[in-house]
Design a protein around this nucleic acid. Structure first.
Length: 715
DNA sequence: TATATAGTGTTTTTT
DNA sequence: ACACTATATA
């Protein structure tokens, strides 16, 4: 049992307590993933549990992947047999096997938020609801909440409820009907449908209860009601349920996560044992002390004190800039200083913020001072228009009855098929209860369609029919290429020819390399598998820790990650904690947990910054220092010069470049930028003695820089 | 049917 | 400030 070596006593206990319910309270950086993987290895090796009888649930694909890799290293190929994945991917797998017991066809698809909203808007139109008075987003939030709580449209309180609930009930019913019509499920459905199936068909429930002897759940503090129910059902027979979590890191209440699940585990699972992992292996004493002093202000938590054997390290540093630019300058200067003086690499630094809106100033400052950076999440690959268009084509080929995909691509690229034509087609389809695509077979029977539109629609039908045929013969990459070429999509982009079209084409190229990779790696490389894969992955999954650049992300995105040096920026009242949280005490506690998560990402150094005055959303206002900063025990904190000048003394600014003459740059000049690489000047304008250049960097877009300040050289 | 303009709402979002 | 959406107009 050499793999138990090096575990501390509580970690060992968490690994070897294999029978009955077990709650592992795993503080930040306490070796949680190691415990989980070792536990699975222990079950297989020491307790002779067959690997396929173990289910391990995580919250991200990345976490599942990491766990699988580590398990593989411990026990070899049998790691592949463990049912490991996110709640959603596990449910999709169950649903695939038992689809006959559901309301869906085997080739069902999964709708993301954009598609959900499109459907809601459609329902609102049909019900004559004013989207201004009744925002589709709010409707979707209410529906999603209902699904998280396993409430069906029929059960939704229509009669007894207030006006809002009555409205939601109406929309919910129609929305669900449309989902089924589209043979589609939203993310919430995936869980709810499986739970319902278990409840209605005891033989299926029994099958999975028999199958899984041991259930492990990671990040239990972030489970919602439906997920709780699923876990509960699966574990009912054996009672072998191990959940791992930390109530102090519960930051997804707004998505339905119910902190109650972890706080009351012992009530829900009588006889449960509890193991606490309080030794932190990640951060220095000062960082941990600072984080502890903040989180101890929360009341909704179990008493817990993280400790570490590590050295005290340096104190956390607090800095207040005059404004957001001064703050950004401090961050950039400090990074360059530590990089030079202490030998850190750019990849060792991470900047965390409460909202994406704060990233822009930092970006500008980094660009100016030549610090390489990348933003994690934010602009999402799979939410880009061109990718979604392409996916809609692929979905339509996979399932021609998908009306939503149909509407998305029928006039993309432009084929002269507009809203009124689609409305006529749609009316016909509705009358006969068929899909839009099917309706294309009866074009002669539709009133009010002039020959011009009939011809356009027929052309579209031929295109899709032809692509469907080809999909049988071509491999995935070839099929995607065929779609892009035969649909005219690529041609339209080429015709546009501007920088934006260029980027879109590169993204599509990127998608092609993804399908190539999928083909070589995936066991089942068919279209359905690809669509399912892209529906369930996110961008944090593709976060690459290798690239040598400073990373920036929201605090939410940083969960589960760790970095040598962390900057938490925008620590101002109203920003962090966010203004919308200050009304309810429960929400302030959630913000505090968010702050705690942010602080505990840091291994060696922690910097906390804010600005006296900030321009945000077009308004400039003075901001008070975040109450969270004031909650930090003074012994762990050191204040650094509050004006830009004092930083300058420590670090001389970049040597000023010689002045730029008005004709130093001309449109068409090729330049080399320290961060963005090679580019071409597309516009030059005079700006207070300096030149403002717009430079097009292939694949990175057009960036505006000051000739005098930017790290560029002519080539 | 495609395009220009006005209006709107701006936390976080593992899936 | 800005990006996205709904509506008016050519």
């Amino acid at each position: 049992m050499d793999y138990l070596q090096g575990l501390n006593p509580n970690q060992k206990l968490a690994v070897t307590t294999t029978e009955g319910p077990l709650l592992v309270i795993a503080g930040a950086g306490s070796g949680k993933t190691r415990v989980l993987t070792t536990r699975i290895a222990y079950l297989i090796r020491e307790r002779q549990v067959p690997p396929y009888r173990i289910a391990a649930v995580t919250f991200t694909n990345k976490a599942a992947q990491e766990m699988r890799e580590r398990l593989h290293a411990l026990i070899g190929p049998s790691a592949e047999q463990v049912a490991m994945g996110t709640f959603h991917s596990l449910c999709v797998r169950i649903l695939r096997s038992e689809v006959a017991y559901s309301a869906y066809q085997p080739n069902f698809q999964i709708f993301d938020q954009t598609e959900q909203l499109a459907l809601i808007r459609e329902v609102c139109r049909e019900l004559n609801l004013d989207p201004k008075r009744i925002p589709p987003k709010a409707l979707l939030a209410s529906i999603s909440k209902a699904k998280d709580e396993l409430i069906t449209p029929e059960e939704y309180p229509a009669a007894g409820g207030d006006f809002w609930e009555q409205t939601v009930a109406k929309v919910y019913g129609k929305y669900q009907q449309k989902l089924v019509q589209n043979n589609a499920l939203d993310f919430d459905d995936l869980i709810m449908v499986v739970v319902r199936m278990f409840q209605q068909h005891p033989q299926i429930k029994n099958k999975y209860q028999e199958r899984f002897e041991h259930i492990l759940v990671d990040e239990y503090q972030d489970t919602n009601r439906a997920q709780y129910e699923l876990v509960h059902i699966l574990a009912q027979r054996t009672g072998n349920i191990c959940v791992v979590g930390d109530e102090d890191q519960s930051i997804y209440a707004f998505r339905g996560a119910d902190i109650r699940n972890i706080l009351e585990f012992e009530k829900d699972f009588p006889g449960a044992q509890v193991v606490k992992l309080e030794e932190n292996y990640r951060s220095t004493q000062n960082i941990l002390g600072a984080a502890n002093s903040v989180i101890s202000n929360n009341t909704e938590r179990k008493a817990k004190q993280l400790w570490t054997k590590r050295d005290p390290g340096e104190k956390a540093v607090f800095y207040q800039g005059d404004n957001e630019r001064g703050e950004a300058r401090f961050v950039a200067d400090t990074i360059r200083r530590l990089q030079k003086e202490r030998g850190w690499s750019y990849r060792d630094f991470t900047i965390l913020y409460r909202t994406h809106a704060l990233s822009r100033v930092l970006e500008e400052e980094f660009m100016r001072s030549g610090v390489p950076y990348r933003i994690v999440a934010g602009l999402r690959f799979y939410e880009r228009k061109e990718i979604k268009d392409l996916l809609a084509y692929l979905r339509l080929i996979n399932n021609p009855h998908s009306d939503l995909s149909f509407v998305r691509v029928v006039n993309t690229p432009k084929r002269g098929i507009g809203a009124s034509t689609i409305a006529r087609l749609s009316a016909y389809a509705q009358e006969f209860g068929i899909s839009l695509f099917e309706a294309l077979s009866y074009l002669d029977g539709i009133d009010g369609l002039s020959p011009r539109f009939v011809k356009a629609l027929r052309g579209f039908k031929n295109l899709i029919d032809s692509l469907c045929e080809q999909s049988g013969e071509l491999d995935l990459t070839e099929l995607v290429q065929a779609v892009l070429e035969q649909s005219g999509y690529l041609a339209e982009l080429q015709a546009e020819g501007d920088e934006e079209a260029q980027i879109r084409m590169e993204n599509l190229q990127e998608f092609l390399s993804l399908t190539k990779q999928f083909e070589t790696e995936g066991s089942a490389a068919d279209l359905g598998a690809l669509l399912e894969y892209v529906a369930l992955i996110s961008d944090v999954d593709t976060y690459d820790a290798e690239a040598n650049a400073v990373s920036m992300m929201t605090v939410h995105a940083s969960k589960g990650l760790e970095f040598p040096v962390v900057f938490i920026v925008g620590l101002e009242e109203g920003i962090f904690p966010h203004a919308r949280s200050t009304f309810e005490e429960g929400q302030v506690e959630e913000e505090r947990r968010l702050m705690y998560v942010a602080m505990t990402r840091a291994q060696e150094r922690l910097f906390l910054t804010c600005a006296q005055q900030r321009t945000l959303y077009g308004a400039t206002r003075p901001n008070a220092v975040s109450s969270f900063v004031r909650e930090i025990d003074g012994q762990y904190l050191e204040e650094q010069g509050s004006s830009f000048m004092s930083v300058q003394r420590i670090l001389p600014p970049t040597a000023p470049k010689p002045g730029v003459s008005p004709d130093a740059y001309q449109v068409g000049d090729k330049v080399e930028h320290k961060v963005w690489g090679r580019g071409m000047v597309v516009s030059v304008s005079d700006s207070g003695g300096d030149l403002l250049l717009s430079i097009a960097f292939p694949g990175k877009g057009i960036k505006k820089v000051m000739a005098h300040l930017a790290p560029i050289t002519k080539v």
